[in-house]
């Protein structure tokens, strides 16, 4: 592979991410939206708030995949990937909560509606994942830390999915849309045009998360190698 191919392979998806994010974040502000008496212009948050959750879910799935990979083949690299994707996923989740609080304050009159099952689920889920990092921080031995946290990840992910996607639909009452089917994409609220911008935004934001994660993993590897070198000396 020559240098040009390598450059294209390395940067094409990053440029795609940039284009998607810029297009969705700018077009989303001016494009016509359906009239909604309650949401008004805040319906545009579909392009900014909801992709955070979709991106988080995808990043956490990747984290789970690498946790399973670690359990079948325990290498330091699999552990770096698993924990790295979990970190970015949780950052996206926190951003989703903060942006959702502002939206909720406008649309529901309260930033935190305790009766909403999705909010209860997501707060428990975030605590689940924060516990993952506490667990990692608490174990000094690197191999033990990697193995125990991989097992924890395998258990935490299905619980998290059950809490934010399944439980709100069973509860029967939610301020969030989508308890009838697809979460976040209620056909009554979002028309076809809005959905296109939403998908573009989701792709861009998710790829951005992947890029940040890969950089993080490389820093982890550098630190790991430096520590090993010091041990050998």
């Amino acid at each position: 592979m020559n240098a040009k191919d390598k450059f294209i392979q390395n940067y094409s998806w990053k440029i795609l991410s940039f284009l998607c994010v810029v297009i969705a974040y700018t077009v989303g502000l001016v494009m016509k939206v359906p009239n909604d008496a309650k949401l008004n212009e805040t319906i545009r948050n579909l392009y900014y708030h909801v992709p955070m959750w979709f991106g988080m879910t995808i990043l956490l799935i990747v984290s789970l995949v690498y946790a399973i990979k670690y359990l079948s083949k325990p290498t330091a690299e699999n552990d770096f990937y698993s924990s790295g994707f979990a970190t970015t996923g949780v950052v996206y989740g926190i951003l989703g909560i903060i942006t959702g609080m502002f939206w909720g304050a406008y649309a529901w009159g309260t930033p935190w509606e305790m009766k909403d099952p999705k909010m209860i689920g997501v707060s428990i889920g975030m605590i689940l994942y924060l516990a993952y990092f506490v667990l990692r921080g608490g174990i000094a031995d690197t191999q033990q830390r990697a193995r125990i946290s991989a097992v924890y990840n395998v258990f935490a992910f299905p619980s998290f999915i059950a809490l934010i996607y399944i439980m709100p639909r069973l509860a029967g009452f939610s301020l969030h849309p989508g308890k009838e089917g697809n979460p976040g994409l209620n056909p009554k609220d979002a028309d076809a045009q809005m959905r296109i911008v939403f998908y573009i935004s989701t792709v861009g934001v998710t790829l951005l998360g992947v890029w940040i994660t890969l950089l993080q993993i490389r820093i982890k590897k550098i630190l790991f190698n430096l520590e090993n070198q010091q041990h050998n000396i």
């Binding site: 990053k14 991410s17 940039f18 994010v21 810029v22 974040y25 700018t26 502000l29 001016v30 890029w211 940040i212 950089l215 490389r218 820093i219 550098i222």
Partner: peptide, 24 residues
């Protein structure tokens, strides 16, 4: 103007990430 500012901020962030990757 708001849209241009958003685009500039996003470009800046992506350029920053790009330079960070080169540094790494």
């Amino acid at each position: 103007i708001v849209i241009i500012i958003i685009a500039i901020i996003l470009t800046g962030l992506y350029v920053f990430l790009f330079l960070l990757e080169r540094k790494i």
